[in-house]
Structures are given as C-alpha cells and as structure tokens.
C-alpha cells in the first residue's frame, strides 16, 4: 500500500507545483524539494530490511564485513549525491548539480583506495624479490 500513498503524494505535489508555479516559482520549487525529501526519508527506513538481508548474506558466506561496509557506503553516497543533484537541478542550477555528482563520484572512488592499495601490495609481493 505504500506505493499508492507515495504515488498519490507525488501526484498531488506535481499538481500543486504546476498551480503554484505561475504565481510563485519559488514556492513551487520548495514544494517539489520537500516532497522529494519526504519520499526519500520515508523509503530510507524500508531499505533497512534489505541491508539486514545483505548483512546476513555476508555473514554466512564469510566475506570480510569491510567489503559490505564499503559497498553500503557507496550506495549511500550515490543516493545522497543523486538526490541532492536532482533538487538543485529542479532549481535550475545544472552546473551546481553536476558538481554535486562529481563530488559523489570522487567519494566513491576514494572508497576504492584501500582496496587498490591491498591489491597493489599483493601484486608487488607476487613478484620475485630482487629479480
């Protein structure tokens, strides 16, 4: 039933935004941003179930918990960056939105640095020492 509520909320927000936009574009933007925020926060609670399943999976298969943590962080960064970028894009600031996305990409790559470090170390260790 959640999806009906959310779609209803989205539709109402869309209609109201269209109505208000003629008079006050500012409030139209605020309305859209608030709706987006509400849906985001509403759904973020539901993701908990998915995450707990993933944690169980990681636990049972015995992969290091650090992998799961990294992956979850990546998902979080991607979502938050995307969400912020969309709100800013709604406000008509495409350039700022693309900077937010850029920041998200950089932060995701930063997550990979320790993994790359370990792999590089291993590869160097594979090479015979001193030729």
């Amino acid at each position: 039933m959640d999806i009906i509520q959310i779609v209803g909320l989205g539709l109402i927000a869309a209609v109201l935004t269209l109505v208000v936009r003629e008079q006050k574009p500012m409030f139209a933007f605020l309305l859209a941003a608030f709706t987006g925020l509400f849906i985001f926060l509403y759904m973020i609670g539901k993701i908990e179930a998915v995450i707990s399943v993933l944690e169980q999976l990681a636990d049972r298969s015995g992969i290091p918990s650090i992998y799961l943590k990294t992956i979850l962080k990546i998902i979080g960064i991607a979502y938050i960056a995307e969400f912020g970028a969309q709100i800013v894009r709604d406000a008509g600031q495409d350039s700022v939105a693309s900077k937010i996305e850029f920041a998200g990409k950089v932060l995701i790559l930063v997550m990979a640095v320790p993994i790359i470090g370990v792999i590089v170390e291993t590869v160097i260790g594979l090479l015979p020492a001193g030729g």
Partner: peptide, 17 residues
C-alpha cells in the same frame, strides 16, 4: 544505483572487491 552516471565508478569498486 540511482542513475547511470555513477555506474562506472561503482562497478570499478565492486570489481576490485
């Protein structure tokens, strides 16, 4: 993943893992 633009980066990290 929310959109395509992040996909390359996330794939890189996932591939590394």
């Amino acid at each position: 993943l929310p959109n395509k633009s992040m996909q390359r980066y996330v794939r890189l990290v996932a591939g590394l893992i």
